[in-house]
Simulated scan of single mutants.
Amino acid sequence: MTINDKFYRLITKELTDGLSREEANMLQLEMQKDKSSEKRQKQISHFWNFFFPQTKQHNIISKTEKKLGFTYHSGRENKLWKRLGIAATLLLVVSIGAYILTPRQHTTLNEYRCDVGEQKKVVLSDGTQVWLNSISYIVANEPFIGDTREVILFGEAYFEVAPNPDQPFIVKTPMLSTKVLGTKFNIAAMNPHARQEISLYEGKVELITDNKAHQSIIMKPGEKAFFSPESGEIEVLRTTLGKPAQWREGILYLYNEDLFSIALKLERRFKTKIFITDPAVGRLRYTAEFENEPLERIIKILCEAKAFAYEKTEGGFIIKSK
């Protein structure tokens, strides 16, 4: 492990689980050795606290989770999501650290965030248009300098990338890089355990896994790819994608998706917790389309299609087997 590796590992732990006294002393020592490390630590901490402020969990939700013994929304999963988020962010900060710390480069680490229940359009410095779905954000160092244009994505976004063959556009999500030249595509990466979805409407993209296998797959228009961070496998299907990113118009389009993934999308859209108590129910798959339907109506239709039970509570919806 190099000195830089040790430094960033300690920062990651400091922002998630906390440091022991010995580790805190080690981090302090590293910053004393290199003054630029202290500045970088402050920048990373500021970024992390901006996007992941400490929030107090709703008492009813907390009691419900404890009573039913849920693992789907467990604290361990949240910590893992934080670690993946910090790790991805640190990769970006490390790769552009020289630009951040050198004023003459005139670059800025920009963060584009979309709140709960909202959709937002942003235009990056190269002219690339990005539509962010609810509770999603991207991080980019702009203007783009070097051989690539690189952004980090958490959540779901639709991209219309400005063509530039000399500077490929790369979207980084947990354990996956999506590399394009100029195209239109949608990425959904909402949870470290859930599979990621990439839908390609125009152009060509290359999917590159950031694991030991380093798998690489070229996608063609009209294809939908599914990537599992846990298995590291990519599955590509030829399908009818319909209109690009229909969620921008309030349409929820589902294609062969399991109920766990659907629940995440519904939580983001309707600001409501959805608990699944039976893993077998969570693995039920659906292909459907809903346009501006209320949450309970959607859950009821899904329930009638695959025969599960649900209960509406003050803390959200509980989905279980019949």
Rank of each mutant, 00 (worst) to 15 (best):
I135W: 07
F144Y: 13
L124F: 04
Y99Q: 14
G75E: 14
V123H: 05
K204G: 00
E65T: 01
N133R: 11
L68N: 11
Q167I: 00
V180Y: 01
G127I: 10
Q129N: 13
G75A: 12
V123W: 04
A88S: 15
T64W: 11
V151S: 05
E118C: 07
T102G: 02
I187A: 02
L68D: 02
V116W: 12
K82Q: 14
T178H: 03
V139N: 11
A98E: 14
P165F: 05
K63T: 08
R83S: 04
K121I: 14
L80A: 04
V139K: 15
K79Q: 15
N78Y: 15
S125Y: 00
R104W: 14
F185G: 07
Y158K: 04
H73E: 10
Q119M: 13
D126H: 11
L90N: 15
T89D: 04
G117F: 05
T148F: 13
A188F: 02
V171T: 08
E160F: 02
L80M: 10
V151M: 05
A157N: 03
N186R: 01
A188C: 09
I100F: 10
T64Q: 14
V122H: 06
R149T: 05
S95H: 14
S199M: 10
K63Y: 08
E142I: 00
L101F: 07
S62N: 14
W131K: 06
Y99D: 15
E197R: 13
P168E: 07
G155W: 03
A87S: 13
A140G: 12
Y137F: 13
P163M: 11
A189R: 01
K184V: 03
L91P: 05
F169I: 03
R149S: 07
A157K: 07
N78C: 04
K121R: 11
K172V: 03
T173K: 07
T64A: 15
Q119V: 14
C114K: 06
V122M: 10
I198F: 01
E111K: 09
I86V: 02
K204R: 11
A87V: 03
M190S: 09
S125F: 05
K67W: 12
F169L: 03
I96E: 13
P174N: 02
A87P: 01
R76D: 14
P103E: 03
H106K: 14
I187Q: 00
S62T: 09
Y158M: 08
T102H: 10
S62W: 09
C114D: 04
P143M: 08
K66W: 11
R149P: 04
A194K: 04
G182P: 00
I138K: 03
G75I: 11
E150R: 12
I187H: 00
S95Q: 15
T128G: 08
N78H: 13
K66D: 12
F159N: 06
F144V: 10
V116H: 06
